[in-house]
Design a protein around this nucleic acid. Structure first.
Lengths: 363, 363
DNA sequence: CTGAAAGCGCTTACAG
DNA sequence: CTGAAAGCGCTTACAG
């Protein structure tokens, strides 16, 4: 099958610039006439769904460029089997970090564009209605759901609607769903094993605000449980604090870690950007050197920890990876493979010099 | 003209739940047959574009509900003159605050849904191509451009394409464009006049990071110039600092303000959320009481300053207001009124007790 | 390798 | 107040 014709219009369609939205756009008929072929030939040239003689193909492509032709989206949706649109639902809950959400939204949109799909944004107040609306009006071919909470009303609807959909995140009940997310549990194990290998026997975990664990998404729990499991397996001393975002809480959280773990030589942070920078400021103010006295790892952050002072080793939560995979999984469903499954992306470790051998304890 | 029929499906379309995306959806023909009318009557019932006998209307509505009918989006786009889709361009530049951007994206989407429009998200790497693509393929009826920089490549394209478009923000050259934004200059005047009325004669401005003024959007400049103009008019002592986001810079910035303005009794902040909370923490640590010793106003923030310690008076930058207005202005253009203009939204003052009379100076 | 034609599901003059 | 019908611009069997 010959490749599809893409990017034909990268030139400079003067014609179009002066047509405006009210102006009559060139149609497939105009192209066919100018190229001296039938409209089916034009259509097949564009879709690549049947072979076209080289010379014919050239005439068509030239005509398309000359006219600045773009297929009409509505006509395509109506005549074809695809709308080439994904709907993206991104509810904003009280504890949502807007910046993190935006990263995922952009990652999904960018991944979608790579396969010539567009992304339609569903708003919070339309969480469930919107899903029903865009699919039954055939506006979207599939759905990508962000920021899934443990018990999410959208999940049962996705199951019932029985349409191509991918969830970024892992709800409590994944039955019948296609989900993708970083493997937070393995990420926690990775952090602990890295530190264990360096000889650390006493590790603190500075987590997200307590409320996030009680209610909302489940990735905080998966990370926490992974961490607790990993330290238990290795017989490492550990403690966890869940401070709010203000400086006082953070300071108290650190104090608690240091007093619970007097021999603490390593700190793992699974927390927001401002919390992490605040921690580093407090440590610096106290004259605690990294990694000399304390090894520090930032885990599952979407933001960039390479510009921190000091730059931190991290196990990134890559919005790009999740978004790309979500798009792949959705397309696969659109193409007919509706097997439900949970896809946990393997964590990776990025070294930046904020971890080192555990300091030798004075007896 | 009778109202359009909306929300017919708010019930529970069992039918649809079992159809799936592959299942055959009810069409306008099915509805017409069941209601015993022609398809034009169904169409007009939905659009409200001609009057329908009450009894006919009822039969149609019942049939629609019974079948769980939703008009096919592609067919509507093709047959009608509207796609009911806005394209939203939101480029992410290095200095972009993702959270702020997300607020605007959601505000636009929410406002759009209120008039039954959907929002298609254009990605950064497609800034200009995307505009051309969605309009010439007639995917979108109009464009809303976010986060406009002073010299934005998208602006000349918007002028050339000559399509319904609204810019949120004010680029350097507004010729031929429709723009909407908070009136940052008046916002600055409002802050200063409020403080002046309370007797303050020495006011500091803590602004955004310096780089934001050198490059990027122009609202920081408009606020700064408004502030400087307002204090000049009133013969008030003033100084401005533009700290980076780390604690050291903020501390140095405050020190600079206090030393430049030894009699400073009021502080206006036009800065990010974490910067503002850090400022409050530093002031608290130094035992400076608000508003006893220092009156503080947060200006043009999209985040919520009511939960700060203490809650701050603010002149909000309302994403909702801008988004709603942008949607209105775009629809107006779609409806034929293409008059270019710049719409500056009036600022409003929200009191929360962080400003008070200027303390009387000891002689 | 290519064309003529049916059909996708609506909207909107046109006619009564 | 309502209906029959043209037409929007594509995709895709069907035919050769």
């Amino acid at each position: 099958m010959p490749g599809r014709v893409l990017g034909i219009l990268s030139g400079d369609p003067h014609w179009r610039l002066h047509a405006g939205i009210r102006g009559r756009m060139a149609t497939i008929n105009d192209v066919a006439r100018l190229a001296g072929v039938s409209i089916s030939t034009v259509s097949y040239t564009l879709s690549g769904n049947r072979s076209i003689a080289e010379s014919t193909r050239n005439r068509v492509v030239t005509a398309i460029q000359e006219l600045g032709y773009r297929p009409n989206a509505g006509a395509r949706m109506l005549a074809g089997t695809r709308t080439r649109i994904f709907a993206l639902t991104a509810p904003v809950r009280p504890d949502t970090q807007a910046g993190v959400l935006m990263s995922f939204v952009l990652a999904v949109a960018t991944a979608a564009r790579k396969i010539d799909y567009d992304v339609l944004l569903l708003t919070a107040d339309e969480a469930s209605t919107g899903l029903e609306r865009v699919t039954s009006s055939r506006l979207a071919d599939g759905i990508i759901a962000l920021d899934v909470s443990l018990d999410d009303e959208r999940m049962s609807l996705l199951r019932a609607l029985n349409i191509p959909a991918t969830v970024i995140g892992v709800p409590a009940d994944t039955e019948g769903l296609v989900c993708v997310d970083l493997d937070f549990e393995r990420a926690a194990h990775l952090a602990v094993s890295r530190l264990a290998d360096l000889g650390h026997r006493s590790i603190g975990l500075l987590g997200l605000p307590r409320i996030t664990y009680d209610w909302g998404a489940n990735y905080p729990l998966r990370f926490r449980d992974g961490f607790l499991g990993a330290v238990a397996e290795r017989d490492i001393d550990a403690a966890m604090v869940m401070p709010a975002s203000d400086m006082d809480s953070i300071r108290r959280g650190l104090d608690e870690l240091f007093s619970t773990l007097p021999n603490m030589t390593a700190l793992v942070m699974h927390a927001g950007e401002s919390v992490q920078t605040t921690v580093l400021e407090i440590l610096a103010a106290r004259g605690i050197s990294i990694p000399g006295q304390l090894s520090v790892i930032s885990a599952c952050a979407v933001f960039d920890t390479s510009e921190f002072t000091p730059p931190l080793d991290e196990i990134p939560l890559s919005a790009e990876d999740s978004g790309t995979r979500a798009v792949e999984l959705t397309i696969r469903q659109i193409n007919g493979d509706r097997t439900p499954h949970v896809d946990l992306l393997p964590p990776r470790y990025v070294e930046r010099g904020s971890t080192g051998p555990a300091p030798i304890r004075e007896p």
